[in-house]
Amino acid sequence: MAHRFGVGPRVALFATCINDVMFPGTPKAVVQVLERLGCTVEFPVEQTCCGQMLTNTGYFDAAVPNVRNYVKAFRGYDYIVGASGSCIGAVRHQHPMLAEHAGDPGLAEAVADVVARTYDFSELLVDVLEVTDVGAYFPHKVTYHPTCHSVRVTKVGDRPYRLLEKVKGLELMPLEAADQCCGFGGTFSVKNPDVSVAMGSDKARHVVDTGAEYLVTGDNACLMHIGGLLHRQNSAVRTIHLAEILASTEGGAA
């Protein structure tokens, strides 16, 4: 490990709006893991959302205040972390575009600065803290769905697999057609509900076929969609965020 316990870096937590309201267990798990690894975690209260829902629906002007909030909240931190491949991807890939759209060179400069220090949770662990074994214990069969934005926008690569491999007791079940989108797609899920559900049903079927007890991803939005289908089908498969598995220890549940 690059950082000894208690003297790890200071990290600003980007909770993301959906985790803040709907899945607070995930940012809590990030805090738990990072503090276990010796980091000092701070939560800048000015933060709201990456703005992706507005941007991806075409409402660029309405998304610009989110960019300003993000810069205001996170300027001055060396490390900013969020537990969402999709939200982190939106910050990295869309905030520069939105700053340009706003025609504000000062904002564009600040965005470039903050974006360069923004990490997905799996990246912060593997690349910055240089750790794959975070001391987690999760004695269950799980299957991992590599969410589209974590792979294709944030480009987390095999980091989540490397982290899961080191979890004691965990059995990773291979997922068929893992690289296919689950069909969530933000507002796509309600603007094209029929296609979204058709895609999600195939994903849910593949998940059930693995025999896993848990479906894990790095994005709670995708989990809400696939989990919503599984719950409606009275499936026993539960959904869980990667961070919550990593926070689980032999001493106590996450």
């Binding site: 309201v21 899920s189 999600g200 049903s201 969609h225 919503g228």
Partner: peptide
């Protein structure tokens, strides 16, 4: 209905992350 016709929607917990923090 577009969401809930085929998918259940989880209820938000009573306490947000921010409140907990």
């Amino acid at each position: 209905s577009p969401w809930t016709r085929a998918r259940d929607l989880p209820m938000p917990p009573a306490e947000s992350f921010r409140t907990w923090w």
